[in-house]
Design a protein around this nucleic acid. Sequence first.
DNA 1: ATAGGGTTAG
Length: 532
Amino acid sequence: MYTAHRAVTEAHGLFCGIKEKNSMSWSVMVGGFAKNGDCVDCFRTFREYIRSADHPDNYTLPLVIRVCRDTTDLQMGRLIHQIVHKFGLHSDPFVAAALVDMYAKCKVIDDAKTMFDTMLERDLVTWTVMIGAQTECGSANEALLLFDRMQEEGIVPDSVAMVNVVNACAKLGAMHKARLVHDYISGKKFWLTVVLGTAMIDMYAKCGCVESAREIFDRMGIKNVVTWSAMIAAYGYHGRGREALDYFSMMLMTGMVPNSITFVSILYACSHSGMVEDGLKLFSLMQEEYGVRPNVKHFTCVVDLLGRAGRLDEASSLIKNMAIEKDEGLWGALLGACRIYGHVELAEEAARSLLELQPENAGHHYILLANIYARAGKWKDVARIRELMTRQRLKKVPGWTCIEVDNKIHQFTIGDHSHPQLKEIYEKLKCLCNKLELAGYVPDTNYVLHDVDEECKRGILYTHSEKLAITFGLSATPEGSPIRITKNLRVCGDCHTFIKYVSLVANRLVIVRDANRFHHFKDGACSCGDYW
DNA sequence: ATAGGGTTAG
């Protein structure tokens, strides 16, 4: 009773008074601490339990494993896995599912997979956890294959399982697959819970179709703050700031209280649509009316907002005066703005602060800085940066682009020649470029940082994965149908121009999902207003 | 009076 009311101190008092504790009393106490978020007390009680009992039971173990998951304490997780082994409980489906989930959330997919593969009996939850694990660790494609395998083995999914499948589609941005999954959900008459509905909104939005996302939204009887935030975010990253603001007002009118994430979504929406004043107003409203303390993400949105509008000094002083810890994304936003406006000095300052944080994708930031130097014609500095990168063995993350054709996903990666039609595609791309150039396209070799001649630079631009994917898409899909591509990095300026001309010359709608947002290309223009 | 899986940003 006490643990149910989060009165864990009282519960512990009573617990200490019990002379002969059985496994049930231990598990209630451990679970009580776990529910309350007291991970130190939870682990301590668990240790006492192990010491006093002959062996731990399979009720208590999942509880502590879950705490390891929530705190991503892999070390503790592995220790508990050893205990599980020692007592031969690794084939218990409850314990095993908890372990798989813990490994996945700690991003060690190999251990999750080994655990899953060696299990004797897998039930719905175990499969669901593993499907989620693959998505979590960046193999959404694998997740969808697992879902097929699960069905082959006769396991019938429920709505929680479907949330994980829907998430995999969202991560992939695979529209055909999304439609198939949607049909499946409708056909099997799953109860459209708030969570499943919200996940589907997110899926459609991330597959590039806000309209379908909205249809789901409209049909949902019950919506929570997450549902509204997902819809607002969707309009935001599709560059439809006006509608994001409309939905935000509607949300307030229904009496729904926005949270910290809602404000990140709406601020982000403002920045992507260049609605500076609206964004700044919301930033103060958030603090004054809703008592939401701005975190580093909110500040990043505002820096982005100011930076894109060219108000670099305000952005930079906002960063200087803020009282919370600065992170990679924050400085990255400032650096990005410097790139747009060619502000070399501020870029150097941002890059210096950024690199002090020893970021994981240092290579990316160096490249951004090198881009800024290149634009300013400072080739010596470009060379210096490249040398630094070589010395530190920093590599550029290889760019890839995916396109879904006939329910199959084709991936194009720089330097990867595995696509069977690649030679043909290169020929077609050359031919396409000729047409585009006749229409006015001029390749922008400023985006090539290698110190080679103009002709070589043009050659390098040819290999950009989005160009290959689009060329392939043009011939592999019916005339007039939209082309949807997903890529892992941001579109380069030259490819952005290239795609504009494709939409004009081939008369196609091209929808690009990049690392940050969506671009809808139509009749030679892009929805981002060349601002990304 | 005890156990494992789910949604929004970046």
